[in-house]
Design a protein around this nucleic acid. Structure first.
Length: 937
RNA sequence: GCUGAAGUGGUGGAAUUGGUAGACACGUUGGACUUAAAAUCCAAUGGCCUGUAAGGCCGUGCGGGUUCAAGUCCCGCCUUCAGUACCA
């Protein structure tokens, strides 16, 4: 009986499903461990071999932890709202829910074939009303919260109202909109209800505001900063322009410092942490206020170099700065307006691409230097960004290269305020070597002292203060799309009202077309049943809107990151209809212990999820404020495209080795037609696509050899390898082993199917070791010492490797073990039992089959590692002091079951050792099983 | 420009705290078994020198250094990849 993986795998997958083998309870005597994958978006293309890489790694770890005696939570679900299903709907009219359902079914089928140990009872789908009910609930909670800077946490909005009633907002230290005016308790109590709502909205953690947003005309929606790459939309690569719109925003900026601080407490990859802290972009400095001469206006700037305040020779405003219109003198008006016009026409992308060109224009106005009272000309220039700081800078040309270039270009003064520094060629920006001069009370001070003194003096005259600035902006939360979570919001007199949580979910309405309306409203503007009846608490027809008891509902939907920002908590208690999750469940599981997913979510999902977790923590819903203790980014698996060379203008294809003799063009063809030697069978190409039907071939040595190119796996390049085909041909266990064997988990690596024969023949050898023809052949006798050595070496190495997430080397270790056992002709039960358990995370199907053949009727899931550890494991690495040649003492580092005497004997017998020791003083001999490694003298 | 990671055979990659560099696998070559192929098994496989072998020399991007000993540590370069970019 040969290793019939197809039958074995089907049998055990059925068994696991039927018995609910991997279903997890929310309470247990065992310690808990939560292993999570980033849930997939179920796209129409299905899985390729790159997708399951992280899932296989996490599954191995989950199965390993179960063996180690943990109660393991290992769920899976779908991030099923999103643009592709919506765009498919726009093209075909098929409801996105149907597309999504079909895609999910396909994903599930593919995932099941690989043999994951997911607890499917806990599956969540973000597009399921039962799930997004709680997304809506969290939105309401955010709406009903504000950020108290003194307590440094989010608090209920009713607390704020209580304060306003008693004492107005004078003593409130909150994160809020900047245009808040102060009011007393009396003022507050006299405000109309609408006034109060307007005021409160400026404090809420999610708020409506007219903001300048990234509008993508082609997609018909706004995008968050992290959804824009190089000035174009991440999805589709369409142009993005700035546009003012009223949108829901999330006050994530309130959490900037805590999001930064939290990074020190979690075990995440350094590059990922770096990109988050870059994104948050904390910089420490001061804000300085300049009075504008002849105007009732001030310009506030942020600077990281208050020590250089005496070097200011001009100011620059962003073209979009609100003061520009007000202060521009009549003489300069034409020029300024032309400049603003010109910059607004340039797309974000052009502005970014063209960093070198210096442009700007003088406003004609002057500011007053806070200390010298000298006139400082005010310019506008597009090197100053409206979106960062205050959109204005105090320009210190001697200390900042951009200011320097600008000053040089327009002939503005460049006063030198540094001691002993030549600034005739470029600005001097080295803080460490700075000694301030020519600066009144700052003369002779270094950077640190001068900064402190400058801030102190600014505060004294009331024209500035120490300040920390963050690059992180509030996140726009509205999308003009259909296939997303509807907001639980209706509008009374233009003010947003939350629907009571008891009436959630507010389900997506049916619409006929999925495009925006003719008047430019979001797709939900097409819904005819989309109004809120406050008396009956239900969604009713738009015809009934009377603005007294039936009101219009919000037409936007939530962005893709809404559902993914808390789904990991929902897995803990996925069927709870009363609460997002029960106290018991969240207190038992607490947080994700291991999270595996791609690094592309660094400044999106992973930042927003940390934000929501901190918010939920503040409001007492979760017990920890970081949701994932450890995170690993799996590297991408790349495709190896196959290239054929067509002689230009013909249908003749020339083999790779002789292509240089012809004028050729490259064409990518399906990699599945190529064998391990990069050889193409011409007949296959002829049958692949009609255009190749009459193709002719120029061969080399009777073969057609294709070119190879490593690039992203994509349908477009015909380099996609489907895991289903691999499972059929080699089995899921081979696929799992091979994906791990390819290389380190975190690294990007090319897929090359030919290598799979290595791990596949390993499994066949393992099978053969215990099968003699049709008979299962295992002895009950004591194994030899060599076999025990092999076993324990393997146990030790594989355990270490799994703990270090070095799955690739542990696969090699298995191969060595089976090769050794084969050479030893060892088919002892004593060796096999632990070996099965050890291998089972990697190759669960064959392991279960062998386990059953051994007569165990339980799934191996219930058997823990310690069973054989106690019984068989001898000393691992330890240091033994021994004597050599009767005089010198030194240490032996030994592995496994070698005793002291045996080691001495081996050292004595080792000719090379004696040679190495000749004339030297030995300190240490390093021994690995069976042989001396090196002698240190 | 800044930040981070990495450079090891024909290829993917091994190498605990510095301790036999190239494990394991692919590929290649030769052999066994087959009418043949596939499958399987065995052997060789970093480069160079020596008729073979034994043996020797050189080898982890480049140049130095520390050490009995360096792929690993230190200094200075080069290259590649990833992220980020007028952030005041």
């Amino acid at each position: 009986m040969s290793y019939d993986f197809n039958t074995i795998e089907a049998k055990w997958q059925k068994y696991w499903a039927k018995n609910g083998t991997f279903n997890t309870e929310n309470d247990s005597e065992k310690p808990k461990y939560y292993v999570l994958d980033m849930f997939p978006y179920p796209s129409g293309a299905g899985l390729h071999v790159g997708h399951p890489l992280g899932y296989i790694a996490s599954d191995i770890y989950a199965r390993y932890k179960r063996h180690k005696g943990f109660n393991v939570l290992h769920p899976q679900g779908y991030d099923s709202f999103g643009l592709p299903a919506e765009q498919y709907a726009i093209q075909t009219g098929q409801h996105p829910a149907i597309t999504t359902k079909v895609n999910i079914a396909r994903y599930r089928e593919q995932l099941d074939k690989i043999g994951f140990s997911f607890d499917w009872n806990r599956e969540v789908k973000t597009s399921d009303p039962k799930f997004y009910k709680w997304t809506q609930w969290i939105f309401i909670e955010l709406f009903n919260s504000w950020y108290d800077k003194d307590a440094d946490k989010a608090r209920a909005i009713v607390d704020l109202e209580t304060i306003f009633v008693k004492e107005g907002n004078a003593n409130v230290n909150a994160v809020c909109d900047e245009d808040i005016l102060s009011f007393t308790a009396e003022d507050w109590n006299g405000f109309s209800s609408k006034d109060k709502q307007e005021k409160l909205l400026k404090y809420r953690l999610t708020y409506l505001a007219e903001t300048e947003v990234n509008w993508c005309p082609k997609l018909g929606t706004v995008l968050a900063n992290d959804e824009i790459v190089n000035g174009v939309s991440e999805r589709g690569g369409y142009p993005v322009v700035r546009k003012k719109m009223t949108q829901w925003s999330m006050r994530i900026s309130a959490y900037a410092q805590r999001l930064l601080d939290g990074l020190h407490t979690i075990d995440w990859p350094q590059p990922l942490k770096d990109s988050q802290s870059n994104w948050i972009g904390r910089s420490q400095g001061a804000s300085v206020t300049f009075d504008v001469k002849d105007h009732e206006a001030t310009i506030e700037v942020f600077t990281t170099r208050p020590d250089t305040v005496f070097g200011v020779s001009f100011m620059t405003l962003a073209p979009e700065h609100e003061l520009v219109q007000q202060i521009t003198t009549p003489e300069q008006k034409t020029e300024v307006e032309a400049y603003i016009e010109a910059t607004s026409k340039r797309s974000e992308r052009e502005r970014m691409a063209d960093v070198k060109t210096i442009s700007g224009v003088f406003t004609g106005a002057y500011a007053e230097h806070p200390f010298t009272k000298e006139s400082v000309p005010i310019w506008i220039g597009d090197y100053v960004l409206a979106g960062y700081g205050t959109g204005a800078v105090m320009a210190v040309p001697c200390g900042d290269q951009r200011d320097y270039d600008f000053a040089k270009h327009f002939g503005i003064d460049i006063p030198n305020i540094f001691e002993g520094v030549d600034i005739s060629e470029e600005a001097f920006a080295d803080k460490e070597k700075t000694i301030i001069g020519n600066s009144d009370f700052l003369n002779g001070l270094d950077y640190k002292k001068a900064t402190k003194t400058a801030i102190y003096e600014l505060e004294k005259i009331g024209q500035g203060e120490g300040k920390i600035n963050y690059r992180l902006r509030d996140a726009v939360f509205s999308r003009q799309r259909y296939w997303g979570e509807p907001f639980p919001v209706y509008y009374v007199d233009g003010m947003p009202q939350m629907i009571d949580a008891a009436h959630l979910p507010i389900a997506l309405p049916e619409i006929e077309k999925y495009l925006p309306t003719e008047t430019g409203e979001p797709p939900l503007g097409r819904a005819t049943v989309w109004a809120w009846d406050v008396n009956n608490n239900k969604v009713v027809s738009n015809d009934l809107i009377d603005n007294t008891s039936v009101f219009p509902l919000e037409l936007n939907t939530m962005p893709g990151w809404a559902g993914s920002s808390y789904y990991f908590n929902r897995y803990m208690d996925p069927h709870n209809e009363e609460e997002v999750f029960s106290k018991e469940a969240i207190n038992y599981w607490k947080e994700v212990d291991l999270y595996i997913g791609g690094s592309e979510h660094a400044t999106g999902h992973l930042l927003y999820a940390r934000f929501w977790q901190k918010f939920l923590f503040d409001r007492g819903y979760v017990p920890v404020d970081e949701f994932a203790k450890k995170l690993i980014n799996q590297g991408m698996i790349l495709g190896t495209s196959a290239i054929v060379y067509r002689i230009s203008g013909s249908n003749t294809y020339v083999s790779k080795g002789i292509k240089d003799e012809y004028d050729i063009e490259e064409l990518r063809i399906d990699v599945n037609m190529i064998n391990a030697s990069d050889e193409l069978i011409p007949e296959e190409l002829k049958n692949w696509q009609p255009q190749f039907k009459d193709a002719e071939f120029i061969l080399e040595d009777g073969k057609y050899i294709v070119g190879r190119e490593v690039e992203k796996m994509s349908k477009r390049w015909y380099n996609v390898v489907n895991p289903d085909g691999i499972c059929e041909q080699y089995g899921a266990d081979s696929l799992r082993l091979y994906e791990m064997f390819l290389g380190p988990l975190e690294q990007a690596k090319p897929w090359n199917t030919s290598g799979i024969t290595g791990v596949h023949s390993f499994l066949k050898k393992l099978w053969k070791l215990y099968h003699n023809g049709d008979a299962f052949n295992v002895t009950n006798g004591e194994p030899t010492k060599d076999s025990l050595k092999t076993l324990h070496k393997t146990i030790k190495k594989v355990e270490e490797d799994i703990e270090n997430f070095s799955f690739n080397t542990s696969v090699s270790t298995f191969m060595i073990a089976v090769n050794e056992l084969t050479a030893q002709k060892c088919n002892s039960r004593v060796i096999l039992e632990p070996l099965i358990i050890l291998i089972s995370p990697y190759a669960p199907h064959i392991a279960e089959e062998l386990w059953q053949k051994l007569g165990h009727n339980k799934s191996i899931v219930t058997v823990a590692f310690p069973i054989f550890e106690e019984k068989h494991l001898v000393e691992s690495t330890k240091q033994y002091p021994i004597s050599f040649n009767g005089k010198t003492r030194f240490t032996l580092e030994l592995s496994l079951d070698l005793g002291k005497d045996e080691i001495e004997a081996e050292v004595m017998a080792h000719e090379k050792t004696k040679q190495q020791l000749d004339g030297r003083t030995p300190k240490k001999v390093i021994v690995v099983p069976g042989k001396i490694v090196n002698v240190v003298g």
